[in-house]
Design a protein around this nucleic acid. Sequence first.
DNA 1: TATTGTTATACTCTATAACTATA
DNA 2: TATAGTTATAGAGTATAACAATA
Lengths: 169, 169
Amino acid sequence: MSPRSDPPPRAAARTFEEHADGPALQLAILGQVATNRLRAAHAAHGLTSRQFQVLGLLHDHGGLAQSDLARIMDTAPSMLVTLLNPLEAEGLVERRRDPADRRRHFVALTKAGEMRFMSASQAHAAAEEELFASLDDRQREQLRELLRALRDGLAPKAQGACRTEGPAR
Amino acid sequence: MSPRSDPPPRAAARTFEEHADGPALQLAILGQVATNRLRAAHAAHGLTSRQFQVLGLLHDHGGLAQSDLARIMDTAPSMLVTLLNPLEAEGLVERRRDPADRRRHFVALTKAGEMRFMSASQAHAAAEEELFASLDDRQREQLRELLRALRDGLAPKAQGACRTEGPAR
DNA sequence: TATTGTTATACTCTATAACTATA
DNA sequence: TATAGTTATAGAGTATAACAATA
């Protein structure tokens, strides 16, 4: 469309509005919207998103040592204390000392914790459905493929994580 | 594919891993990645992302009253003080009282502020290019369309904003 | 009395370092 | 000495409320 030599084909100077319409910022903004909706879904069941993650990992693994949980979540051990204490106080989670190595705390869901995860999990699914309500099935599949390609194209570091946190706004 | 009546066709119970693979969490995670890359790009030029936004809005509008800036950014007036003070101390921004209404502070970029925005803007564009390097042109266009459809499908509130902030992790 | 901008304060989430106990 | 977990502390980022100046 530009038949001859425009100066160099480098990115021309952009206005801020052009940046704001660009895919990076749009992705960042929509990711923040998704984060907020999910946070609200979890909060409706008395959980922060990270606590939901804790319950979920315990659910999937059938319990974990506190140190393994810290490794999986890529967070400091002291953070886990902060996350687990209220969960234990509410009776959603149980800490048991490992008799074989009395330093270790084995953490597992209680019955109440299982039920709480189930209900929060449904809220999570509902929030997801609501977020993508405006896309038809074909668009959703396209989006999933693109996000997967994007994820795979980025550093391996970003793949396993579930880091969606950060204060409300 | 399920020829007769599975219980109800409601969403079955999900493991956490299934949630983690779902589009909502993937979008949230990738949005956080984008936020972090952009933040790094801005930080390389001595700016937080919100300060970059301030410079950008001043660039696009050719200066604004502080109160208008607060309205556009949907933030408290006191936040602007926090954002503008270091920018003014560095000489990137100038505050002038409006002679017609001496309560108002008209804020505009200095020459140095313009240059700083330009360089940070290039870094922003480079980060964007790097983020989407693994997608070909067709995929990028698909993604832009899907993000636009998604944005338009969500509450009008989410459309204009540029909120990508929140602490580092 | 309402509006503009500032200061002072508090809150949330996260990160770091020092400490206890087990090995 | 090294590891598991805890406590205490500090930091970044944001929000809220009280205030001064001007209209």
